[in-house]
Amino acid sequence: MLFKDGQHILLIGDSITDCGRREENAPYGNGYVSLLRAFTTARHPEVRLTWTNRGNSGNTVRHLAQRWDTDALAPRPDWLSVMIGINDVWRAFDGHPQNAVPLDEFVETLRGLLRRAVEETGCRLILADPYVIEPDREEPQRATSDRYAAAVAGLAEEFDAVHIATQRVFDHAMRCTRSEDWSHDRIHPNLAGHALIADVFLSAIEL
């Protein structure tokens, strides 16, 4: 396993990471972060890890930039997992285009944040793609999201990060299921959808 005894794992992002971690489901939320923590602990009880969830619902990369110092750098994690980009795309399609983040701004902002994290804390990175649980790759939001996911994959290679191909996992599942089986709105997963995300994380860290 990539995680070692005594390490601190911090996961930051939007509502997919948040999942009520500041409310009734504190401190880990009731989504993929909680599942990943539980199954990692179950499989490797000898590896004592500290887990921190810093997802904030509604966040774009602009919001991450505003809270990066306190929420990502100050805790000085050994591993920093970032899943961001869904809202950066979605806002262009949900009636709030002024809050969408153009691809070039998204890439440059995220690159700068990741560089700071590595240089100032020495952490290893995990980068998870944004996604839309939509099988039609020509559908406008899905097509746009795929470009952002490709950019995240490029940053993962640039920073030698662990890459979580979230969209690919949902695409594989939708070969025999419907989008509604995983989410009511193509974005926010149900428990099974969060399990899919947690499972691909587990596969990546078990290398």
Rank of each mutant, 00 (worst) to 15 (best):
D160I: 03
P140W: 12
A100W: 00
V82W: 05
N87A: 10
L110H: 00
R124D: 08
G154H: 08
Y148F: 14
E108L: 14
P135A: 04
E158S: 10
S81Q: 06
H96T: 13
W79R: 09
E158W: 12
I126D: 04
I84Q: 05
I84V: 13
E134W: 02
D88K: 02
V107H: 09
A117R: 02
I126R: 05
P102M: 11
A149L: 05
Q98H: 11
W90F: 12
R76P: 00
W68V: 02
A128G: 15
A74Y: 10
D136G: 09
A74Q: 14
R124G: 14
A161D: 05
H163K: 13
I84K: 10
A65R: 14
R124N: 12
V162W: 04
P77E: 00
D71E: 15
N87P: 05
P75R: 09
E105H: 12
F106Y: 15
L73F: 09
S145A: 15
F106L: 11
D69S: 12
T166K: 01
R67W: 04
F159C: 00
D136F: 03
T121V: 11
E138W: 08
A92L: 13
H96L: 14
Q141H: 11
V89M: 11
L155W: 00
V101Q: 07
I86G: 00
A161H: 01
E158F: 04
L155D: 11
A149I: 05
E119V: 01
V82D: 06
E139H: 14
I133Q: 07
F93P: 00
W79T: 00
I86A: 09
R115M: 13
D146G: 07
P75A: 02
Y131P: 03
M83A: 05
G85D: 03
A117V: 06
L155C: 02
P75M: 10
T121Y: 10
L113T: 07
A92P: 02
H163M: 10
D69T: 14
A149Y: 04
L64S: 03
R91T: 03
R76H: 14
V132P: 00
I164S: 03
R142C: 15
L113H: 10
R142E: 02
V82P: 06
L64Q: 03
L110K: 01
A156S: 12
D160W: 02
I126G: 03
S145Q: 10
D88T: 04
P75E: 10
H63R: 13
W79S: 01
